[in-house]
Amino acid sequence: MSGALPATELAIETTGLTKRFGHQTAVDGIDLAVPHGSVFGFLGPNGSGKTTTIRVMLGLAAATSGYVRVLGQDMPASLRDVLPRVGALIEGPAFYPFLSGTANLQRFDTADRHASSATRRARVNQALDRVGLSHAAGKKVRAYSLGMKQRLGIANALLMPRELLVLDEPTNGLDPQGTREVRSLVRSLAAEGTTVFVSSHLLAEVEQICTHAAVMSAGKLVAQGTVDELRRVGLAHVKVQTPDTEDAGRVLQRLGLAPEPPHSNNDGGSTVRAPLADHTVAPESIVAALVAEGVRVRGFAVESSSLEDRFVALTGEGFDVVQ
């Protein structure tokens, strides 16, 4: 875990951060530690408190208790010093529908007292260019598609050189090109030394671009660390494809594994899975044992844990929103 890092190297640090809405605790005493220069994935099911955490971090909402430090300074006390260095996309983009994309960005830029008006036009155009919106810049935002608005929202976060980018579900509504574009954008920003804090549901994506991640569940922080660390905590599985599921299960049990109930595949065969604790049984000896027992092995694989497994393990299988 990254707890070993000295405090000064944290771009975002929360201590016992709690936010209550009436009786409901949306964020429950979380201790986030986002290292400088990292690409930090902030994961969690719907309603687990990600956006709420981001709002408190940016001083939009007051914490019920606990502390937040962003870029080494207390929030919201140092809000004026901190926010100009932070670009943000908070719970989707929002614009004045009756203004063009350019006009919208200019308006937000005007709101920032630190942004010089002399370079405004150039910076706005550059940001639009970066998200591939140059051609639609003169169009009224009312006429933008969902993905175009999303891109414009990201452009807004990039109006100024930032030390920290907070992106709440940046790829929501983007086409595959857009998604790729955002991914490479985040990589290039990270290469420039910008810390990127991304909240997302798209685990595959987080796995691809993030160096660190944290998982929220029902307002609590249930895991945090580098992506590798998180993945490693999860168990590898053996996966046996066979029509003889009962025999396979018996063999696995004899080897000291705990097979899960089999489930059938589309092609008529079935799969038996069993978690593989570290170094207890060698995978090749499992195949040998299965074959020796006459189990018709059609396929065999050892799968290392994915972030998704880890995510589901941490946050539960249930589809219903917890809070």
Partner: peptide, 14 residues
Amino acid sequence: GHGTLRYLLAAPAG
């Protein structure tokens, strides 16, 4: 209502 308030405050407009 437009949702632009959060962006103005995050700009930060003060």
